[in-house]
Amino acid sequence: MYYKRGDLKNYALYMSKMSEAKDSLYARKKKYNMSELQSNINSSLSIKDLLDTITSASMGILIIILLCIMVFSLMLHRTRKRLIAVHNRLKAEKQSLEQAKTQIKSLKKESAKKSDRIERLNNDIMVASQSSEANARCGKELYLHIKNGGTTVTWTKQDYELCMAYCKIEFAETMAEIERCYG
């Protein structure tokens, strides 16, 4: 009746009660010695009753075994679902770690390129500062040459530019004051 309605929980309870009843019956029967059992079987039970009892007990045992198999398969199915979910989560984490590794590699390459560029710029700055110091020295020498009464006949265009650049730097304050006064 429970089985037909789909109430497997009550059916399993019913079957376990039946199994317990049969186990107690078996225990009671076991208490008799073999001669009493043989006489009881011959006198009270016929072979048909014995076969019916054995058949119903074996059916009960089979039903219990089938219920155990169903419960076990349900547990396996749930465990499999959980394992698949964990596997998918680990796979996603692995992919994100691989992406992070590639980003780190690209950042390292980019950083190396930038440090090379910074080093080149520092070298360029050093060369430019050395060049500007040399230009300032040359401009000062040309200015002193004119100041000491020298001529500009042999000067090139670059010589004039160096001398003017030196004068702009050397006399910047004086020029600023002249411009203020003029204004």
Rank of each mutant, 00 (worst) to 15 (best):
Q95F: 04
N123W: 03
S106T: 05
A100R: 03
V71L: 09
I104T: 01
K105F: 01
V86K: 01
K91G: 04
S132N: 13
N123H: 09
N122L: 06
S43F: 02
I64P: 03
L142Y: 03
K109E: 07
I118N: 14
D124Q: 14
T79I: 05
G149I: 03
E110C: 04
S56T: 09
G149H: 07
S39G: 05
S58I: 09
D49G: 10
K48R: 12
H87S: 12
C138S: 12
R89W: 08
A112F: 11
Q99P: 00
I69H: 02
I63V: 03
E119K: 14
S43H: 04
N42R: 06
D52H: 08
L67E: 05
T152Q: 07
D49H: 10
V71I: 10
T79N: 04
I84K: 13
Q130S: 13
I104Q: 05
K91H: 11
Q99Y: 08
D124P: 01
E93C: 01
L37N: 04
E133N: 15
C68E: 15
I118V: 15
I84Q: 13
E110I: 04
S73P: 00
I63W: 02
L97K: 05
N148R: 05
A100F: 01
D116R: 13
N148F: 00
I61R: 03
S46W: 00
A136M: 14
R80I: 06
S44V: 15
Q38T: 14
S129C: 05
M59H: 11
T53V: 04
R120T: 11
T79V: 02
T79D: 12
V153G: 09
M70T: 12
A100I: 05
Q103M: 09
S46A: 08
D49V: 10
I54H: 00
C68R: 07
N148K: 06
S132V: 06
A134E: 12
N123E: 02
A92D: 03
Q95I: 05
S43I: 05
S131I: 06
E93G: 01
Q103P: 01
L144R: 15
M75C: 07
L97G: 02
L90F: 07
M70P: 01
R82I: 11
L107M: 07
Q38I: 14
N122A: 09
V71R: 06
N148S: 07
L142A: 03
E119G: 07
S96C: 00
K109L: 08
M59D: 07
I47W: 02
V153Q: 13
L121V: 15
N42V: 01
A128P: 02
K105I: 14
V127F: 02
D49Q: 15
L97C: 02
S43N: 08
Q130D: 06
F72P: 00
K113A: 06
S43C: 03
K109R: 11
I65N: 11
